[in-house]
Amino acid sequence: MATVSLTVNGKAVTANVDPRTLLVQLLRENLRLTGTHVGCDTSQCGACVVHLDGKAVKSCTTLALSVDGATVTTIEGLAVNGVLHPMQEAFREHHGLQCGYCTPGMIMAAVDMVSRRGHSLDEATIRDDLDGNICRCTGYHNIVKAIAAGAEAMGKAATPTRKAAE
């Protein structure tokens, strides 16, 4: 067993884990943050995507001990004080989910997409950039719409904050 300390959704956490524990197991089993899902064994489906130091990663392909000292945000940490993140809101508004299983990973990937590729995302860009996430229910049609709308909403939400900071 070994100790790992990190910040998850703004809270400092320490856990004693078997070295073979994956980040997703630490989240789901130790911290009971079950919003992050496992949908495959080969790092392809993206149901397990979380943000590690601000970047989307597959938590099923990351050892818990490798993220000692890091900051992790999961789907549970996206809404702030009960206010939904614009991307969460967009998925609901545009029916970007059905069974909900891929959804946490999709939303985390979408937020990461916006941070890398900006607030104005066309359909081709979104489809191209979504190749690390598989959905079996929606045919992606509404996910694409949701991400475009969520990206734009994040831009609008971010503008006043940025101005205030300047």
Partner: peptide, 25 residues
């Protein structure tokens, strides 16, 4: 162990079984 995106899935499938894992991260 570098990025782990080949080694960890292989270990998960029990197709690799190192006794020591040296994480270069």
């Amino acid at each position: 162990l570098a990025g782990g995106h080949t080694l960890l899935p292989t270990m998960k499938q029990r197709l690799a079984s190192p006794t020591h894992l040296v994480d270069l991260g």
